[in-house]
Structure formats: structure tokens, C-alpha cells
Amino acid sequence: MKILVCINNVPDTTTKIKFVDNKAFDSAGVQWIINPWDELTLTRAIEMKETQPADIESVTVINVGRADAEASIRKALAIGADNGIRINSDTSDSYSVAFQLSEYIAKEKYDIIFCGIESSDYNGGSVGGMLAEFLAIPSVSSVSMFEIKDGKVVVKREIDGGNETLSVQTPFVLIGQKGIAIEPKIPSMRGIMTARTKQLTVVEGVACNQLIEFVDFDLPKAKAACRKIDAENVKELIDLLHNEAKVI
């Protein structure tokens, strides 16, 4: 099987978020990383290739972004992806990203397309589902386990209040979340070295109508200070939760 993993390039999760005139994210001095959910699904794809090489022919990573996203692509190559593709575009809304991906994927053939459940920047959580609909193939989201048994794909997905195990016919879009891998793989020195010779192809993006636009951004207002309650008088907390917050 050929696996394609979609990765997004996002600010490090500890970044202090700022905006330029409330219109755009201020990227000055920001360290960029592979979106944590994408990195987890990527890790699982690579684990599968390493443990079941007979089932996985290749793992390709793809990103829709500007040239500065290439560091993240190369990290994915260092972790173990076979090759990388960057669709040159600076769009950030999910619909355009999914459209760009679908235009490229329609020309290639992949058996499973991996996406993370959400990006830690704009939190759209919709690229995977949109991509599947553009390609008119099934999608399974909230996937917390992925295996190939006797050549068949078996996934576990989280439902609200439990989980379901499914077998899925390829091609399909797998939308992964926490649990699909324990933690992201750290690249080894050998991996970093071999990434030097792996192919990173750049293709030009295609035009797409934007259905939504970001009007502006703002930061949460400073929160009222925490009201401290004496440890000797926990009854006061119950009183506040009942009468002031009205949550119990």
C-alpha cells in the first residue's frame, strides 16, 4: 500500500500568540513544527512501514504551504518518510487546502491518506473530511488505532462514549487522533543523514474560491484573578459554585 500523510506547519505549541494589527498572525521569531496530530499519524504510518514492510510500499508526506514549511517536511523525511511534496501556496483556510491536496492526489494513486484530526493553529479540524469528499472516497475520523491484518485495514475510531473497530476498503482518508501512536517519533542521526538524499518535490498550487475569510483576531481578555478559598472552609466553595457560578 502507498500511504500519503498530510502535514501542516504550525507555530510551536508554546508560542506566545500575537497578531499584526489584529489582522494576521505575527510570525516574527516563531519556531515552526509539524502539527502535533499530523506528527502522531505520521509516526504511526512510519511504524507500520518499519514493522510490516510487506504491507507498506511507501510513505509520502505532503504539505500545502510556503517554502518555510520545508524544514517540517525534511523532519518528516528524517523520521522515516520516503519522499516529500510541497504544494506551493499560502492559503490557510481548510477548504482551499483540501482542494489543493485533492487536485494533486487525483493525479497520483495512494491507498490511504492520513490527516491529523485538527491543526493547532486555526483549529478548523476539517481538511481530512473535505479532502475525502473532494476525492469521493470514505473517511474515518477520530482514529485511535490503525493496523493492517492479512492485507486488510483495521482501524479503531473514538465515538462519543466509546469506540468502534472497523475494517475499511482502500482508498480512504484516515483522520488520526491521540492514541494512534504513543508519541511522535524522534528522528535519529541516521534518519537525518538519509533525509539529505530523499526527494522533496515542489508543485505549484491551483486557484480556489475561498468560502470563508478571517476578518480579524483578538486575544482573550485578562481573566479575573482566581478567588482563593481557605482550605479549612471548603463549604464556601460549594456555596459559591451553587449561588454565584450556578453550576451545581
Binding site: 524544514a71 523532519k75 524522534i186 528522528p187 542521526m189 537525518i192
Partner: peptide, 18 residues
């Protein structure tokens, strides 16, 4: 270089996680 930064991050992740 990009590679040097990647090695630094790998060492940091290893140290902090493990």
C-alpha cells in the same frame, strides 16, 4: 543549518520526554 536545528530539537525531545 536546518539539520543542526533538527538535531538540537531531537536531543531536546529525548531529554525532556525520556
Amino acid at each position: 543549518t536546518e539539520e543542526q536545528l533538527m538535531i538540537q530539537q531531537a536531543a531536546k525531545d529525548f531529554a525532556e520526554r525520556e
